[in-house]
Simulated assay, not measured.
Amino acid sequence: MKKSDFHFDLPHELIAQVPLAERSASRLLVADPRSGTLEDRRFTELVDLLRPGDLLVFNDTRVLPARLHGRKASGGLVEILIERVTGSHEARAQLGVSKKPKAGGRIVLADGSEISVLGRDGEFFLLRFETVEPVEKVLLKLGRMPLPPYIEREAGTADDERYQTVFARASGAVAAPTAGLHFDAALLERLAARGIETGFVTLHVGAGTFQPMRSERLEDHTMHREWLNVGAELVEKIQRTRARGGRVVAIGTTVVRALESSIKDGAVAPFAGETQIFIFPGYRISSVDALVTNFHLPESTLLMLVSAFAGRDFMLDAYRHAVEQRYRFFSYGDAMLLYPQSRE
């Protein structure tokens, strides 16, 4: 298959630039390829679309304020986007700068502290923070929320809370698991009251999630690495859910990515480590029975993942419907409840 097979036309004004006043006020497109139906609903109606005994699986990663600004020794401005914290004082990052620094170069941050450039790792730079405090504390003090490149404004103080799920707890991501942004405390309480169980994986979303595919053939693409943890407690919940006839519902593509990466001998098993899994049509997703997801960029690996789940033609039809009905797209946008194509 080709990258261009996943293109769709998106009016720029449908790209959500700010979140809604309330998290759960989003719209929800219910898309079922088995019946070919598309239903326009409200996100709060998700409670009624699920059944007692279903299991919702969330990604509990917490977004770091991973965007920093500094200056080179020459005085040139540098924008730093941490891709991953690799040690107490080390990180891998993208650098926005007119002339790329060489190994041994120094970057001075706003408080006068310094970062050393250790070298390159492909398109990323390896950095060492020459600070008393570890990287994460420096980010908490000086960093800003790393809003996606299609949000055309600087991060504000409101984004510190809204570009974070209400259940975020494991720090390490540099992008939000955006399907989870629609859930607030009241909605989670309603789900629990209906007898719907919840569980968590951790997958630290990296900056690579926004990088465009450079190869036209899908088979030639090398996926970025992300760290994940699927624990024994969640595996037991999945097993109990399956045994009672309940459905496993992934909240976001990152959950699908984590669960599919942990499959061993045909079933989800405890696993912690890195994944480079690339899911596109032809791959059979077996770990989940439904998926809540936001709308994704044209020709993106995330659109390819949901197309593997529900079928490419059906997904493109659903996206055309979403455009016609003026849904809000991407991280701060609306959501879909997606069912799988026939597995027979």
Score class of each variant (00 low, 15 high):
Lys3Asn: 14
Ser4Lys: 02
Phe6Arg: 00
Phe8Arg: 02
Phe8Trp: 08
Leu10Lys: 02
Glu13Gly: 01
Ala16Glu: 04
Arg23Ala: 14
Ala25His: 12
Arg27Tyr: 05
Leu29Arg: 00
Leu29Thr: 09
Ser35His: 08
Thr37Arg: 09
Glu39Leu: 15
Asp40Lys: 10
Asp40Leu: 15
Arg41Lys: 11
Leu49Asp: 10
Leu50Glu: 06
Arg51Asn: 11
Arg51Tyr: 08
Pro52Leu: 12
Pro52Gly: 10
Gly53Arg: 04
Asp60Ala: 12
Asp60Val: 06
Thr61Trp: 03
Pro65Lys: 06
Arg67Thr: 11
His69Leu: 09
Lys72Cys: 03
Ala73Tyr: 04
Ile80Arg: 00
Ile80His: 01
Ile80Ala: 06
Ile80Met: 03
Leu81Trp: 14
Val85Met: 02
Glu90Phe: 15
Leu95Ser: 09
Gly96Ile: 11
Val97Asp: 00
Ser98Ile: 15
Lys99Met: 07
Lys100Asp: 07
Pro101Arg: 04
Lys102Ser: 14
Gly104Ile: 07
Ala110Leu: 13
Gly112His: 12
Ser113Asn: 11
Ser113Phe: 06
Ile115Asp: 05
Ser116Gln: 01
Gly119Ser: 08
Arg120Glu: 13
Arg120Phe: 08
Glu123Met: 12
Phe125Ser: 14
Phe125Asn: 00
Leu126Asp: 13
Glu130Ala: 15
Glu133Asn: 12
Leu139Thr: 13
Leu139Tyr: 13
Thr157Gln: 07
Thr157His: 06
Ala158Pro: 00
Asp159Ala: 14
Tyr163Gln: 03
Gln164Gly: 09
Arg169Gln: 12
Arg169Leu: 02
Ala173Lys: 02
Ala176Tyr: 02
Pro177Asp: 00
Pro177Val: 05
His182Lys: 02
Phe183Asn: 06
Glu189Trp: 10
Glu189Asn: 08
Arg190Ser: 15
Ile196Ser: 06
Thr198Met: 04
Thr198Asn: 00
Thr198His: 02
Val201Ile: 15
Leu203Glu: 01
Val205Lys: 00
Val205Thr: 05
Gln211His: 09
Gln211Pro: 00
Arg214His: 10
Arg214Leu: 09
Met223Lys: 11
Asn229Met: 01
Val230Lys: 03
Gly231Ile: 03
Glu233Arg: 08
Arg240Asn: 08
Arg242Gly: 11
Ala243Cys: 07
Ala243Tyr: 09
Ala243Ile: 13
Arg244Met: 13
Val249Trp: 08
Val249Arg: 02
Thr253Cys: 02
Ala258Glu: 03
Glu260Gly: 10
Gly266Asp: 11
Phe278Ser: 09
Phe278Glu: 01
Ile279Trp: 10
Phe280Tyr: 15
Phe280Met: 06
Ser286Glu: 15
Ala290Met: 09
Leu291Thr: 01
Val292Arg: 03
Thr293Asp: 01
Leu297Cys: 05
Leu297Gly: 10
Ser300Asp: 10
Thr301Ala: 13
Met304Tyr: 03
Met304Cys: 10
Ala308Thr: 05
Ala322Met: 07
Val323Ala: 13
Gly333Ala: 11
Tyr339Thr: 12
Gln341Met: 15
Gln341Asp: 14
Ser342Phe: 08
Arg343Trp: 06
